[in-house]
Design a protein around this nucleic acid. Structure first.
Length: 315
RNA sequence: GGGGGUGCGCCGGAGUUGGAGAGCCGGGCCAGACUGUAAAUCUGGUGACUUAGUCUGAAUAGGUUCGAUUCCUAUCACCCCCA
């Protein structure tokens, strides 16, 4: 690939509420490029307030893709997201050199930049069946099956995590092959390069910001949004901080104060998990507030790659 | 001023009333794992240290005892009652 054909995706990650959107919009405006969202909740058109989806005014005219592009009634898997996003990006990069990929879902970023291994389709009903067995017979029962069917994966999997066990078994039962047989863990070739950075902040300040962000969501009508969606609470996409807690409140399991407290707590815990993920994945860490530094760093990266894009004054 | 009660680890609760535990539950916090449910799911830590272990520890200071979180004395703090 010649230098002129260099394609670059600037991936921006980080914990919830750290300011990913603001920075992305700023950079997108500067280079006059769109933003592709890597967020497993903002992708649903029904989840607005609770997902922290940027408003029209926050987008400032910058085109956003994969925001509100699906419906909670048709859940999108990470695999589907990869397929759609890559198709979109390949097409985009035919005529363009630079894009911003912004979002808090680490696995989505990974699906774009590295790709997921190809797994067979799960036969309808298998997952539900496994869920039933898990509830009735327990994890140990499923573990025994995994040990027999796929000793390799059994040896390395987190055996206390039902999600991992049932995932492996749904693939095994659907394909009659070992789960580990599909786990090549080999990065895919992409038509573009990913530059991965994440924003962070002092923990105390981040948590304060998250707490007040939740207060803002409540003011904006999170409770009503949750109420409308409560009939569909069992959908995977509604297993989400900000909604689940309200569902319990509607049930009378907890009172309003408690629901709010839990939303804040679970948001903080989520933020921590995100930080752990990006550090673990080797992303470059930047201070959320140091835009100047990030700008200069990015300029440098573009120059190195021979990417010459006018900093547009539009916006 | 008099009488009574309570006091342990970041916080709350339970529990031990002479054979002691850096111990139980919850919270908070810290850290980690994670390839199609990922805002999901799961794990570890939270007195100190030279960390497979060692030391200190039940408000503080003494005392009784072979042995004290437990009993005694004083002090401090908080709570209740009486003046």
């Amino acid at each position: 690939m010649s230098v002129e054909n260099k394609k670059l995706a600037v991936c921006i990650g980080g914990p919830t509420g750290v300011g990913k959107t603001k920075l992305s919009v700023f950079l997108a405006q500067k280079y006059n490029i769109p933003i592709l969202s890597a967020d497993s909740r903002q992708i649903y058109k029904e989840l607005n307030i609770g997902s922290g989806k940027p408003s029209i005014s926050e987008m400032q005219g910058v085109p956003h893709y994969f925001i509100s592009s699906s419906s909670v009634y048709k859940p999108i898997s990470t695999g589907k997201f990869e397929t759609q996003a890559i198709a979109w990006l390949d097409s985009y990069f035919k005529d363009n050199q630079l894009i911003i990929i912004c979002g808090g879902t680490g696995l989505y970023h990974r699906a774009i930049c590295r790709g997921l291994d190809k797994f067979p389709k799960v036969i309808p009903g298998v997952r539900e069946q496994l869920q039933k067995e898990l509830e009735k017979k327990g994890l140990q029962f499923l573990l025994a099956e995994l040990q027999e069917q796929d000793p390799e994966y059994y040896a390395e999997v987190d055996r206390q995590n039902p999600r991992r066990i049932t995932r492996a078994l749904e693939v095994i039962r659907s394909s009659h092959q070992k789960f580990s047989a599909f786990r090549k863990q080999k990065p895919k070739k992409r038509s573009f390069e990913c530059l991965q950075i994440f924003l962070s902040d002092e923990r105390k300040a981040l948590y304060d910001r998250i707490n007040s962000r939740v207060d803002q969501m409540l003011e904006d009508g999170l409770e009503e949004e949750a109420r409308v969606l409560s009939a569909y609470r069992d959908l995977p996409s509604l297993r989400t901080v900000g909604y689940q807690e309200f569902f319990d409140y509607f049930d009378g399991t907890i009172d309003y104060e408690e629901a709010v407290r839990l939303i804040k707590r679970n948001s903080r815990r989520y933020a921590k998990r995100q930080l752990t993920w990006y550090r673990n994945q080797g992303w470059l860490e930047f201070d959320f507030n140091d835009w100047k530094f990030i700008e200069e760093w990015l300029e440098d990266q573009l120059k190195k790659r021979g990417i010459n894009i006018k900093s547009g004054q539009n916006g």
